[in-house]
Design a binder for these strands. Sequence first.
DNA 1: CTGAAAGCGCTTACAG
DNA 2: CTGAAAGCGCTTACAG
Lengths: 334, 334
Amino acid sequence: MIKNITMKDIADKLGVSKVTVSKALNDKEGVSDELKQKIKIVAEDMGYRINTLAKSLKESNSYNIGVIIAEKFTGNNKSFYLSFYKYISRILEEYHYTAILNILNYEDEAQLNLPRIYYERKVDGFIILGQVSKNYIEILKNIDLPIVFLDFYDEHIDIDSVITDNFYGAYEITNYLIRNGHRKIAYVGNLNATSSIQDRFLGYYKSLLEHRIEMNNDYVINDRDKNGKVIELQLPSDMPTAFVCNCDMIAYNLIKKLQENDYRVPEDCSVVGFDNDIYSTISEVKITTVEVNMEEMARTAIKCIIEKMTNPKQRYGRISIKGNVLIKNSVRTI
Amino acid sequence: MIKNITMKDIADKLGVSKVTVSKALNDKEGVSDELKQKIKIVAEDMGYRINTLAKSLKESNSYNIGVIIAEKFTGNNKSFYLSFYKYISRILEEYHYTAILNILNYEDEAQLNLPRIYYERKVDGFIILGQVSKNYIEILKNIDLPIVFLDFYDEHIDIDSVITDNFYGAYEITNYLIRNGHRKIAYVGNLNATSSIQDRFLGYYKSLLEHRIEMNNDYVINDRDKNGKVIELQLPSDMPTAFVCNCDMIAYNLIKKLQENDYRVPEDCSVVGFDNDIYSTISEVKITTVEVNMEEMARTAIKCIIEKMTNPKQRYGRISIKGNVLIKNSVRTI
DNA sequence: CTGAAAGCGCTTACAG
DNA sequence: CTGAAAGCGCTTACAG
């Protein structure tokens, strides 16, 4: 266990008392500007972070405000990450822990600022829910608290992560299409956009291979430009009977595109998605999709982080959690 | 300031030491079962709540886990309440406070269980974001922490609340329709479903009155049944040229309904919504709507609660924050 | 301008 | 089985 730097440590280093350090760091009266300055610099150098717990105890004031949202406002796939958070906070409670949700704003992400809850020692670890920038990951790597990535991973750095089994999910849903008689099946998604999209493609491909269906390059349809921005979809000239989309949002867009071109879904074309988010439910045609097992993912991430707290050397690597194919009504048997 | 009950208080009452109380409450060895039982009962009676800050300080363990979500996952009206939370947590930071998001699950809401963060003294107050049940409000009323309702209010009980100005927003957007030449304007929403829907109706009505447009009872269209479940909309036989919908979701449904009946939006019918949530952006036709001023609402709620912490008697009542009409492309000038 | 003392509410290790 | 003492890391009130 690394010893935490306290005001006492700073005081000892400078040969002053911790009272003086406290005053200096809080910009209170009664310390010469010179000393104040010196103390602040030393605090910075030593990597001092205030322990708000102690401050709060003294002041009988937690400096926390509870924000309560009724579960009904989170249901119905209304928000993928809010639902995820719901499971995280609920499962943390089982361990007598409390979740503190921090929205990392664009600016702090770009400027590589860690959250204030880190500097104030308000937390014992971090769960990073959803992709953050490479540079930010580097910063996170250097802090002395356990960290787990949830719903994404980074190939180059060994932080533990819990992800949905993209490969297997896409494999299963493609198998489902094939069981329903489809053989001309396209994949919608840029193969190099994200690791999820790539892995989903590979699952689709595995299913084709297993069923001796030849891959048709015209059947891999781009859905975004170089910057990741969603583009207008181009339908192939020789139409497939089914489309595996890399996510529900794209499946939703595809269905609109197909309908504009007078193809009915699922009568003329079948379409499947991934995620089971709001886009799979808002169109007339409810989209057959792969539901992410949020609860199991959250539970696993929490198990990791709790374990790492007592045993910081513990490594889990990348853990995939299987999703479930959710059959709705965007697929026709042919 | 009400004095907090501590282990010492329980100990004094029973003529034992606080060590014994600590052991009893934590089910540790070394206290007779009899005494343990007695201590637990007295603790319950006195309304004892552990101070986790002190426990955490002692154990150098905050029992909090930070959950980090990048802002990009909250943008684009993806989730109304997640966006709201973003503002709340950001503004609380300005006051050196931290937000702890608690999703109140169905069960706890029904059984009237307060959040664990209350019992563990982890928070200094609560912001209730979005309507909770009447009975739950009663329970909240009785706790000794400042509370502010955000985005809803309760008519019968005087807790401070900050809401969007439903009345004025609907008034403004109806005026906008009238400025664009419309005179046959319907309102979609049940007048007695919620206070927001009612207030929005009244704003619409005020605009009609001011412009000497007679109310047509056929132009008040129900959108839900007695249980609040959304129903299929019925178009009036004499078609209006414009519809004021009580929210974007209903506006979205209406547009689909109109299109099914071969009315084009906005060429044949204009439609406006309320909220500026995801439903105003997902259809082909982007819906002109009233944008809720979340930031200002959050800021106001926080000002209230911070003020109430130093001055518990302070009352603000109901504060309305004006929204803005957001012009998109679902209205035609006639 | 600087610091010794007390205390916030707990828990742990030890003594009886 | 029970409790006095020490300590977690701060801040406040007071003395010098």
